[in-house]
Amino acid sequence: MEQDGTELLNEVRLVGRVSAEPERREMPSGDELWTLRVVVPRPEVAGARRQVDALECVAWAARPRRSVGGWHEGDLVEVEGRLRRRFYTAAGARASRVEVEVLRGRVIRRARTGRAPRAVASAGTTSP
């Protein structure tokens, strides 16, 4: 999409560690999703403590759900997607959250073995 000759886009690429086991959730609508948090270190600043960003990610579509469902705490992963703001009702009040909608993802290195996965699927995802 363009506006005034400038390409408008919403693209996110993260490379980081899965901070806890991804969670499968079923929404009141019946939709299934997987949620996870990817921790990415910030660039080092001389004299400052090392900082990280813990970013909420959600996989709605079938292919990314299959990928994320095979990930584990500590896995080094690459996530591609877009930033989304989702609105919902919690305890009778309207609320929102910003999260990365996972469109593609892959394991770079498994936490438990320290090795890269053997098989890579054609869509840029790895099989668990």
Rank of each mutant, 00 (worst) to 15 (best):
residue 9 L to A: 12
residue 18 V to L: 07
residue 50 R to W: 01
residue 114 G to R: 01
residue 25 R to V: 08
residue 70 G to N: 09
residue 54 A to P: 03
residue 101 E to M: 11
residue 74 G to R: 07
residue 53 D to K: 03
residue 100 V to Q: 02
residue 97 R to Q: 10
residue 57 C to N: 14
residue 10 N to T: 02
residue 55 L to T: 12
residue 119 A to V: 14
residue 33 L to M: 10
residue 32 E to S: 13
residue 128 P to Q: 00
residue 66 R to M: 12
residue 27 M to V: 05
residue 112 R to N: 06
residue 44 E to K: 15
residue 61 A to I: 12
residue 115 R to W: 10
residue 119 A to Q: 13
residue 25 R to H: 09
residue 69 G to F: 10
residue 52 V to G: 02
residue 26 E to V: 14
residue 3 Q to N: 14
residue 99 E to V: 11
residue 48 A to E: 15
residue 36 L to D: 04
residue 84 R to Y: 06
residue 101 E to W: 08
residue 5 G to V: 10
residue 100 V to A: 02
residue 10 N to F: 02
residue 96 S to P: 03
residue 71 W to H: 00
residue 117 P to L: 06
residue 92 G to D: 02
residue 111 A to Y: 08
residue 83 L to K: 05
residue 108 I to L: 14
residue 40 V to L: 07
residue 63 R to H: 14
residue 62 A to E: 15
residue 74 G to S: 08
residue 27 M to Q: 12
residue 86 R to D: 12
residue 105 G to F: 01
residue 18 V to K: 09
residue 104 R to N: 09
residue 118 R to L: 14
residue 62 A to W: 15
residue 25 R to Q: 10
residue 2 E to Y: 13
residue 3 Q to P: 03
residue 18 V to Y: 02
residue 120 V to K: 14
residue 97 R to D: 07
residue 109 R to A: 12
residue 25 R to A: 09
residue 12 V to C: 07
residue 58 V to D: 06
residue 26 E to A: 10
residue 70 G to R: 06
residue 117 P to A: 04
residue 125 T to A: 03
residue 3 Q to I: 13
residue 85 R to C: 13
residue 12 V to H: 03
residue 109 R to M: 04
residue 118 R to Y: 10
